[in-house]
């Protein structure tokens, strides 16, 4: 408690820094994974190789990737760009699989009906495929949100500020309260963002609630 009282300012600052890394990575992974997942679902032969590739990406431990990405891309190892790129890689690896499953879950009848009444592929994507894929995609997004928020902290060992800084700093200075505060706030952020995902999912799929009420 004493630690908390003296460090509210830095706790807030690190929370903001944490969100500034996690949120862009989560959004980027959506933007990247949705087209890949949709394509994987349309081109059946591309599905297995695409999923195998994201499986391999997912198997790479994160700390080495935090070291290698800046070397290969020539960016600063402590830069936010490094953290966002690494986080996006893992988030995308989860999201591609989830998006491919989501688009496969869209009923064939719905797609064929849309084509039959003259929807173009583009129009059908936005008004049939994507909305009907939301429930399954949301499940994947929730996993992405929770694991990304937790993964951000790894960057702190190479000097990228986030709530993880409370772990490294607290460990070096032997302050249990600091580490505990970092743990609690990180889990809280994950829960809050997860809640936002659930609410957004409800708002975007009003028909699901209508079906429940019936």
């Amino acid at each position: 408690m004493k630690w908390l009282n003296q460090n509210v300012g830095s706790l807030l600052e690190l929370t903001v820094a944490h969100l500034a890394l996690a949120v862009p990575a989560i959004l980027l992974s959506l933007v990247i994974a949705v087209p890949i997942g949709w394509t994987a679902q349309r081109l059946r032969w591309a599905r297995d190789p695409a999923l195998a590739l994201v499986g391999v990406l997912y198997a790479i431990p994160s700390l080495p990737l935090f070291v290698l990405v800046p070397v290969v891309l020539g960016i600063g190892i402590r830069s936010s760009a490094n953290a966002i790129i690494v986080l996006t890689v893992y988030a995308t690896a989860i999201m591609v699989r989830s998006a491919a499953d989501a688009f496969s879950s869209v009923p064939l009848e719905a797609r064929m009906s849309a084509t039959a009444i003259g929807y173009s592929t583009w129009h059908r994507f936005w008004s049939v495929d994507l909305p009907l894929a939301i429930p399954v995609m949301l499940a994947g997004l929730r996993v992405v949100v929770v694991s990304t928020v937790s993964l951000v902290t790894v960057g702190s060992v190479i000097g990228i500020p986030s709530l993880g800084t409370l772990f490294t700093d607290g460990f070096q200075r032997g302050i249990v309260a600091e580490v505990a505060a970092g743990l609690i706030v990180t889990v809280l952020i994950a829960l809050v963002l997860d809640g936002i995902c659930i609410l957004a999912g409800r708002a975007l799929t009003p028909w699901a609630r209508a079906a429940e009420a019936r």
Binding site: V146, S150, G164, G170, F171, G182, T186
Partner: peptide, 15 residues
């Protein structure tokens, strides 16, 4: 999944 591994590691390290 929500528990950051580094947090768990450093907390146990201190203990």
């Amino acid at each position: 999944r929500a528990i950051p591994t580094l947090g768990l590691l450093t907390l146990l390290g201190l203990a």
